[in-house]
Amino acid sequence: MSSFGAETGSAQASRLEDLNRETRRIRTTMEGATGTAESSDGLVEATVGVYGELVDLVLDARIYRMPDAEVLAEQIRTVINDAHSKAQDAVRTKLTDLFPMDLDGPEEFAFEPFLRMAGRSTEGGAR
């Protein structure tokens, strides 16, 4: 028999409340997490959320002096990806007690399905 099954109702309720608190902490941490990166020449700056959403993009007016759109596009992609990595690193740092530090990229870092399931189970909602 599992230790969870052997617990009394009040012990189970206490564990569920602890899980609910941790779930809220994770959500709060992830909702506010952003990362900001800047290009080496300082012409492009991006702020990105932990799920990759672009929060802010600042383009210095001097970019118009550079007629190569492909170079500019690559520079923007690089800055956005760097900012996304920084946002994920910020969350990893804040949640080191819950998640392993060897997560390797966005596909392993997408905790949203876990948070939805955990939220439902602690709030008593249906699947």
Score class of each variant (00 low, 15 high):
residue 77 R to I: 05
residue 15 R to K: 15
residue 79 V to L: 09
residue 62 R to G: 05
residue 71 V to K: 00
residue 90 A to L: 13
residue 33 A to K: 07
residue 116 R to L: 09
residue 76 I to V: 15
residue 1 M to V: 15
residue 43 L to F: 03
residue 85 S to H: 14
residue 64 Y to G: 08
residue 55 V to G: 00
residue 78 T to D: 04
residue 59 L to T: 07
residue 33 A to F: 05
residue 117 M to Y: 08
residue 45 E to R: 13
residue 17 E to N: 12
residue 83 A to R: 11
residue 17 E to C: 03
residue 73 A to D: 01
residue 11 A to F: 07
residue 110 A to G: 08
residue 57 L to I: 12
residue 31 E to A: 15
residue 51 Y to A: 03
residue 103 L to M: 13
residue 103 L to T: 05
residue 34 T to E: 06
residue 75 Q to H: 00
residue 17 E to P: 00
residue 17 E to H: 11
residue 89 D to W: 07
residue 78 T to K: 06
residue 38 E to H: 04
residue 110 A to P: 02
residue 94 K to R: 07
residue 44 V to C: 00
residue 62 R to C: 06
residue 98 L to Y: 14
residue 11 A to L: 13
residue 38 E to Y: 07
residue 51 Y to K: 01
residue 103 L to H: 07
residue 113 P to T: 15
residue 94 K to N: 02
residue 37 A to Y: 02
residue 91 V to G: 01
residue 6 A to Q: 14
residue 94 K to F: 02
residue 33 A to V: 12
residue 71 V to C: 00
residue 6 A to Y: 08
residue 19 L to V: 15
residue 98 L to F: 15
residue 82 D to I: 14
residue 116 R to W: 10
residue 108 E to L: 14
residue 58 V to R: 10
residue 91 V to K: 02
residue 87 A to H: 07
residue 114 F to M: 13
residue 32 G to L: 11
residue 94 K to H: 05
residue 62 R to I: 11
residue 42 G to F: 07
residue 47 T to N: 02
residue 97 D to W: 03
residue 53 E to A: 12
residue 120 R to C: 01
residue 43 L to H: 00
residue 89 D to P: 01
residue 70 E to S: 10
residue 115 L to W: 10
residue 73 A to F: 03
residue 61 A to Y: 13
residue 77 R to S: 04
residue 66 M to Q: 06
residue 75 Q to M: 05
residue 116 R to G: 00
residue 3 S to K: 07
residue 90 A to F: 12
residue 23 T to W: 03
residue 15 R to F: 13
residue 37 A to S: 10
residue 52 G to Y: 00
residue 57 L to F: 05
residue 11 A to W: 11
residue 9 G to D: 10
residue 24 R to Y: 04
residue 23 T to L: 04
residue 70 E to W: 07
residue 104 D to S: 11
residue 26 I to Y: 12
residue 41 D to N: 14
residue 24 R to N: 09
residue 45 E to S: 08
residue 123 E to Y: 12
residue 64 Y to M: 12
residue 60 D to W: 11
residue 102 D to M: 06
residue 67 P to C: 02
residue 43 L to S: 05
residue 122 T to I: 01
residue 111 F to S: 01
residue 118 A to Q: 10
residue 69 A to M: 10
residue 105 G to A: 04
residue 54 L to Y: 08
residue 47 T to R: 00
residue 17 E to F: 10
residue 7 E to Y: 13
residue 21 R to N: 14
residue 31 E to C: 09
residue 122 T to Q: 02
residue 3 S to Y: 05
residue 101 M to H: 03
residue 81 N to V: 10
residue 99 F to Y: 07
residue 65 R to C: 03
residue 28 T to C: 05
residue 90 A to I: 13
residue 105 G to V: 00
residue 52 G to S: 01
residue 114 F to K: 10
residue 12 Q to W: 08
residue 78 T to H: 02
residue 44 V to D: 00
residue 30 M to Y: 07
residue 53 E to P: 02
residue 13 A to E: 09
residue 32 G to A: 13
residue 123 E to S: 14
residue 77 R to W: 00
residue 67 P to Y: 06
residue 93 T to I: 02
residue 100 P to C: 02
residue 92 R to E: 06
residue 104 D to H: 13
residue 124 G to M: 04
residue 73 A to C: 04
residue 92 R to V: 10
residue 33 A to W: 01
residue 37 A to G: 00
residue 4 F to V: 14
residue 54 L to D: 03
residue 2 S to Q: 09
residue 3 S to D: 12
residue 14 S to Q: 13
residue 80 I to R: 14
residue 57 L to Q: 11
residue 126 A to H: 06
residue 89 D to L: 10
residue 85 S to R: 14
residue 76 I to F: 12
residue 107 E to C: 03
